[in-house]
Amino acid sequence: MSEILAFHGVQKQYPDRPVIRFPDWRLAAGNHGLVLGPSGCGKSTLLALAGGLLTPERGTIDLNGETISGLTEGERDRRRARLVGLVFQTLHLVSALSIANNLALAQYTAGQPIDRQRIRHLLAAMGLESMTNRMPETLSQGQAQRIAIARALVTRPKLILADEPTSALDDASAKRTASLLLEQAGTCGASLLIATHDHRLRGIFPTVLELEPEPA
């Protein structure tokens, strides 16, 4: 089975901070993974590296069989637009656009034709069809989070990266969100990689990568 993501000898350093060394690991296409660890251990950095938002100082990162760590920013932008769906910690939606247009915006930035039918179907499948034409500020936190998940899926990515999607939620909501992510990723054949300190998710994922706390 081919790999969607592979880290090999990856090191990342921020100015005036100790080097973060990531263990070598791979995620098979279609498999889901969980990155666990306390705050500050480099979980978000790992996701940013996987999505090509950052490049490592050392080592290589392969995305969908191609080494992206040596590419230019523009080239990484294109790979990310085509292959990766992102669910952010803060669920940021563009407040000037309706829900449907927020999803359309993701299709636009991915360089895909705007597919209104796909947007409608996806929102319907997630039980969100009533929100199609609403503006983001009229949504509750939980609704906004589900819209953010829909947006990550609308471009049919091969890899979904989610940063702390459940840590602010109660047990029931966390479980529901995690299953929604898994279910939708499965529907579109994408791999799901979640970075979290939320141990409630541990049992659900077959691949778990535990990062060590930052060395003092």
Binding site: G51, D77, A81, H92, S95, A96, A110, G111
Partner: peptide, 16 residues
């Protein structure tokens, strides 16, 4: 600023 970061994260090039 957040919208712009979001656009970039979703793959929009800087020229957009």
């Amino acid at each position: 600023r957040h919208d712009m970061m979001l656009l970039r994260a979703m793959g929009a090039p800087k020229r957009v």
